[in-house]
Amino acid sequence: MDVIDVEVKELAIGVFGSENKADQWLVSDKKMFDGKSPLLFSSTEAGKLKVIEELNKIKEGYFL
């Protein structure tokens, strides 16, 4: 797995309940990220903020 921001990784683990499930989500391409994986999309500050926003939506029960 490429380098991922610690904040994003920890949030993803908290949302999905395990590191394995978080990793699966982080490397899978998503329409919400223009067909890119959250890992790739979060390589910029703006992308990171969008990934965090989407993780918080999932955490709160909002699914696309």
Score class of each variant (00 low, 15 high):
residue 47 G to D: 09
residue 13 I to Y: 11
residue 43 S to T: 13
residue 28 S to T: 14
residue 53 E to T: 10
residue 60 E to N: 14
residue 12 A to H: 06
residue 13 I to H: 07
residue 45 E to P: 00
residue 30 K to I: 04
residue 5 D to M: 03
residue 6 V to D: 13
residue 54 E to Y: 15
residue 21 K to Q: 05
residue 35 G to N: 07
residue 61 G to C: 07
residue 14 G to P: 01
residue 14 G to H: 02
residue 10 E to P: 01
residue 18 S to Q: 07
residue 2 D to E: 13
residue 19 E to M: 08
residue 59 K to E: 09
residue 48 K to G: 05
residue 24 Q to T: 06
residue 11 L to D: 00
residue 6 V to R: 13
residue 52 I to V: 15
residue 45 E to L: 13
residue 1 M to G: 13
residue 36 K to R: 14
residue 48 K to E: 10
residue 22 A to I: 05
residue 27 V to S: 12
residue 63 F to D: 08
residue 64 L to D: 15
residue 28 S to H: 02
residue 56 N to S: 00
residue 35 G to K: 07
residue 37 S to E: 04
residue 46 A to W: 06
residue 9 K to Q: 14
residue 12 A to I: 08
residue 20 N to K: 13
residue 35 G to V: 10
residue 60 E to T: 10
residue 19 E to R: 13
residue 5 D to K: 09
residue 32 M to G: 12
residue 35 G to E: 07
residue 6 V to I: 09
residue 3 V to I: 11
residue 21 K to N: 11
residue 20 N to Q: 12
residue 51 V to D: 04
residue 25 W to R: 10
residue 54 E to W: 08
residue 34 D to K: 14
residue 31 K to V: 12
residue 11 L to E: 03
residue 15 V to D: 04
residue 46 A to D: 15
residue 1 M to K: 02
residue 27 V to F: 10
residue 56 N to T: 00
residue 20 N to F: 11
residue 40 L to C: 01
residue 23 D to E: 13
residue 27 V to P: 00
residue 37 S to R: 03
residue 48 K to I: 05
residue 8 V to R: 06
residue 5 D to Q: 11
residue 12 A to D: 08
residue 9 K to I: 01
residue 62 Y to W: 11
residue 56 N to V: 01
residue 5 D to V: 05
residue 52 I to G: 04
residue 38 P to I: 04
residue 13 I to G: 08
residue 17 G to L: 03
residue 42 S to H: 02
residue 40 L to K: 12
residue 28 S to D: 03
residue 4 I to E: 11
residue 59 K to H: 06
residue 43 S to W: 00
residue 42 S to N: 01
residue 53 E to S: 15
residue 51 V to Q: 05
residue 19 E to S: 14
residue 61 G to I: 04
residue 49 L to T: 08
residue 10 E to R: 15
residue 16 F to L: 11
residue 34 D to A: 15
residue 61 G to T: 03
residue 13 I to E: 15
residue 27 V to H: 10
residue 16 F to I: 12
residue 49 L to Y: 02
residue 3 V to Q: 10
residue 33 F to E: 05
residue 63 F to K: 10
residue 10 E to D: 15
residue 2 D to W: 06
residue 4 I to G: 03
residue 39 L to Q: 11
residue 31 K to D: 14
residue 6 V to H: 11
residue 36 K to W: 06
residue 38 P to E: 05
residue 5 D to G: 06
residue 32 M to Q: 14
residue 22 A to D: 07
residue 41 F to R: 02
residue 32 M to K: 10
residue 23 D to Q: 12
residue 54 E to M: 14
residue 59 K to D: 06
residue 56 N to W: 00
residue 7 E to Y: 03
residue 7 E to W: 00
residue 62 Y to G: 00
residue 16 F to W: 12
residue 62 Y to L: 11
residue 47 G to Q: 09
residue 41 F to I: 03
residue 52 I to P: 06
residue 11 L to Q: 01
residue 46 A to H: 08
residue 26 L to I: 13
residue 61 G to Q: 05
residue 63 F to Q: 04
residue 62 Y to D: 06
residue 48 K to M: 09
residue 2 D to V: 10
residue 33 F to D: 07
residue 27 V to M: 07
residue 64 L to I: 12
residue 19 E to W: 04
residue 12 A to C: 09
residue 41 F to L: 02
residue 39 L to S: 13
residue 48 K to F: 06
residue 58 I to N: 01
